[in-house]
Design a binder for these strands. Structure first.
Lengths: 232, 232, 232, 232
DNA sequence: CATGAATGAGTCTTCATTCAT
DNA sequence: CATGAATGAAGACTCATTCAT
């Protein structure tokens, strides 16, 4: 009922594709994959079912595109956060976590799809999700490894630590997605970073972290290109 | 037009109900809720469709029963872990985490259903899951609160800490469920507990923790009554 | 929910059969044939499904028995009404109509089953109903025939007149069954008889008719044997 | 996995809807509501099950549409019969009855559905049918009322008379529907009208009535627009 | 490029009937 | 005689996908 586009503006291929993806994101996030019929999406986007199949191979294909692009965007955010003049380790951690959280909040619909809808959707997506998780974990592992060598952190088992680390962040986001959504997720960033710094037994200075987070958020707000998930 | 008394051993109502639940748990965990037809379950359990509906109102009802019983069992495990002669805080934490992990491993199928399948199944279950998560988080909060008062732990924001704490544990389990399943999840218990103790900045002694975990596991292995999830 | 017999009184074959028929009559009249499951009837009668099939071949068989016995009873009533020392024709008509109406009211449940439920149930019952209607009509025809010969009535076409005659009576009853049921059907007897006497252009005296109706009703109220539909 | 553009002539939406309704009318009239599966109707109409649900919400919806349209048509016929330059009361009665009978004969299938199938179908339809009967009766009542005032008819109780009146007509039609169907129902019109005129003790002239009936039938045969029940 | 009517395999669910106990 | 758990055929309805226009 919402999402109804009335005036059929003539759009170019890319714009229409983007329109479908955005509409689908909103509807899928709200109703869930199985509760959403292709017709719901096409009605929402003001196009015909036939047109939908001109842009996507099938319903799962659309979902996969949405999923992949979401993931790509979130990874881009991480890359961006790390692509900074070298600075203290704690600062880097802060930037990455801050950017992730900022992104999840910015793309709430997409995030919900990726973190909640896609889970347990079907064996294919489960594997996809598992792979992504594995990659996330292994990314963190490769960051923790040298830190451990240099005795900047204290961890018992790197793999477990990385998994717990990711889980801590994800759960803060997921709980927010599932209900606290009115509150400001970004306010959780600082406590979360502190929790994780402590978990790794890393030296840190709260003020420095706080500052890094604020800087990161500000940077992100000003670099709009980064965010346009559907660009190109 | 009906009948064919199967050659199977005649089972009593409760046993048959249990048989259906167990069969369903295995199939649902493997194929997923939407990919599993009622007939898959009945075929698996060697009963007719009609019989299924003799024991459960419908497919969702079965799932809900499975879900609720799983959750109840896991909570029982926690209660059991805490129902011990008072001991150090670190020891209690260790026992609870160890028991959870032990339970998840023991009831792999059920756990997968609860932690992966039920997520994003439909609005009703999403809410159910959200409620359980909220309760878990708030349980932890009420444990952390007094510890913080007594300055036994250092946390910036109790709610965020509790959420991160739960997420860390869940993710270790979930990742294991999703692929590492051949490995022994229990080996992750010690590193996980250490990670979390550090995260809370709590004093702890690794050996003591290790010992608590081992004790806990041993106790659990010997108290078989606790485990029979479907018992009466 | 109603109809629940709680104390299992031990009954003899015939009594149990009667119990089932009576329970079925009440439930079928209320919920309709297709909306009533065999289990509804057995629950209502406080017996098991198995027992039901000990007394009746199947659901349709029960219905047929109910149907036939109802019809038999109503015909008995007609016979009884006519089995009187000869009297005026108008009086005879009055007695028959009065007895019918009295019976329909007395056996409201059964009547509803026969006149409403059975209609359009399935081709077999349709034919059965048609046959009964044909017989009713032809009964009336054979009454009207000699009257016409003797010029005591004026009818254009005996068959049409008989059909219309039956229809008039039935509709008064059916409308009552379908809603007016709180009102007293017997009050409609006099106006109905007058309507029909006029329709046949027969000489009649209102007071005499009124008296016949009253007499008939009184007789019926006092002859209880006649009514026990399940007797035999 | 779908399609097979049938070789049938492509029909527009309204035509296809009409095709389904007509097919359904024929099959439902023959087999009865509960004995007819949706697939029977779609097979009969040469369409797929899916298409059926494109045109009707569900099986009951189809039946209701059929029911309502039938009733509307029959009422239209009555209106048409009365929409004539004023004439004698007897003539008006004749025209209305003639038009009804003519319509029932013309729409045999539909009539059977309305008058036989719908009876006792389920509580909803029972009430619907009851309402229609109540309305028919009350229509007749409001016609009889003034006639009684003006002493043009003699009736004892208007409500009973109206009910009997309707019942007489209906039964003539219903009996015909149920078996006499080869014979010509219209031949019953004159005797029926005479029966009813007499029943109301109304003055009438057989020849005039006969003429009115013939005129009515002729008019109806020539006004084809009136009949297309599914038109627009 | 766009449309949307048509398709039909696939699912859940009911319930009359049986028969081992 | 009585029981009621078990059966499975039958039927209503959904929805992703196609293709003639």
């Amino acid at each position: 009922m919402a999402f109804k586009r009335s005036e059929k503006i003539e759009l170019h291929k890319d714009e229409k594709r983007k329109l479908i993806l955005e509409t689908a994101a909103a509807i899928l996030a709200q109703k869930g994959y199985h509760q959403t019929a292709v017709k719901d999406i096409t009605d929402g986007a003001g196009i015909s079912v036939g047109t939908f199949y001109l842009y996507f191979k099938n319903k799962e294909d659309l979902f996969e595109k949405l999923y992949d692009e979401t993931w790509k965007t979130l990874r881009n955010l991480n890359d961006y956060a790390l692509k900074t003049d070298s600075c203290s380790v704690a600062k880097k951690f802060s930037r990455v976590i801050a950017s992730s959280i900022w992104g999840y909040q910015k793309f709430k619909d997409l995030t919900k799809i990726m973190m909640i809808e896609a889970v347990g959707l079907n064996p294919r997506f489960e594997e996809k999700y598992a792979q992504i998780m594995r990659q996330s974990v292994s990314d963190i592992e490769s960051i923790l490894e040298p830190l451990k060598e240099r005795e900047l952190i204290v961890v018992f088992d790197i793999k477990v630590a990385a998994t717990a680390y990711i889980g801590a962040i994800h759960n803060v986001i997921t709980c927010w997605l599932r209900g606290d959504a009115r509150s400001n997720l970004c306010e959780s960033t600082l406590p979360l970073v502190v929790f994780l710094m402590q978990a790794l037994n890393m030296d840190f200075n709260v003020d420095e972290i706080k500052q890094s987070i604020d800087e990161m958020n500000e940077e992100l707000e000003n670099d709009h290109d980064l965010l346009d998930i559907f660009k190109n």
